[in-house]
Design a protein around this nucleic acid. Structure first.
Lengths: 185, 185
DNA sequence: CGGCTGCGAGAACGTTCGTTCTCGCTGAGT
DNA sequence: ACTCAGCGAGAACGAACGTTCTCGCAGCCG
């Protein structure tokens, strides 16, 4: 296993554990055991647990962005592209491991105490807002629509996380349809 | 200071610290220092930190419920009552100490590890859903509208928390207007 | 005035955690 | 075969935390 593959393996494992249990509940020894990588090696690859956390969040941002972009790319009309975001959420919510937005979770846990985490969460959400804004612009809809659609997506994520059900995706999607159609006229 | 007043003082102080810094970042000694109550007394009033956390969440639920109910009661038309929810959010977001929904934060931090916290978060959100559902029913709007409005409120809270701005309340309010008016016809 | 009860201050304890250190093995180079 | 650098396993360390214990003082009852 190459150096970069191992690094990816560690970050991926850390992401799974942090997301499932919360960052603070996962010790370096848990990560060592789960990843099968000696503690010494972990510390030769990363200077601290905090560095791992930040890399986990950056990776999670890439995967989310790629995933939603790919989903949006499967349809052609601007309206369908906007709605595809909620279909992506629906699939995500149905995943057994779903436990809300990892950035909101990380922000809640460490945002007040670790500024880098708060910063990454902010960047992630800004990136999503820009993504939606671009789609809204492509649809020729007024710019006001974008933050409304983003808020629906955010709300669906926390609602699904806490309720443990997947309905919020469909509910947000139907609300989005109404908002898009109302903005179009 | 009476026994019950002291208990309230401790829970209120704990709430302020937990909300501002995150529950896990606040030790019993921090709480002792901030509340000015000896550790021994804390442990004579509460069996454990966890018990304090649960009581903090229950109190927070009461205050939130009372606050939003009071705000809704200041207007008369069913439509205004629904929109008053977002005005309440706007005021809350403008508070310097605002740092998102305490239940979402607690859930993110401890939900996976402390089932009672997950349970209280679920109950809080269900209670809010019922509250909105009642208002929707009073407005004579279709029941589908309620979860959509609730999702907007949830999304506004996390968006405001992470962005650090208050705009999300107004954006959610305007989206709600569109949804309500679309449902009314 | 003397003894007893209750409480405040803070030390102490046991555990957990992030991080570092020790030690012994392995395996490549000569 | 010998050496030595590098690595894995796990012990060790220092700090932080939740919880309990000790001790000494204050205040009340006799």
């Amino acid at each position: 296993m190459s150096q970069t593959d191992l690094r990816e393996h560690v970050v991926k494992t850390a992401d799974r554990l942090y997301y499932a249990r919360g960052i603070q509940s996962v010790g370096m020894d848990d990560l060592r055991a789960e990843a099968g990588v000696p503690l010494k090696r972990l510390y030769s690859m990363f200077p601290s647990k905090n560095a791992i956390v930040l890399e986990v969040l950056q990776r999670r941002h890439r995967i989310w962005t790629d995933g939603v972009s790919a989903r949006v790319a499967t349809v052609t009309s601007p309206r369908d592209k906007l709605l595809a975001v909620y279909d992506y959420l629906a699939d995500w919510f149905a995943d057994d491991s779903f436990r809300g937005c990892g950035f909101i979770n990380a922000f809640a846990e460490m945002g007040a105490v670790t500024p880098e985490v708060a910063q990454l969460a902010r960047e992630h959400k800004e990136s999503f807002q820009r993504f939606v804004s671009d789609l809204v612009a492509q649809a020729g809809a007024p710019a006001d629509l974008a933050p409304q659609l983003a808020i629906l997506a955010e709300g669906a994520q926390t609602t699904a996380a806490i309720s443990g059900t997947t309905e919020a995706a469909g509910q947000a999607r139907r609300a989005a349809e109404v908002l898009i159609d109302a903005a179009a006229r």
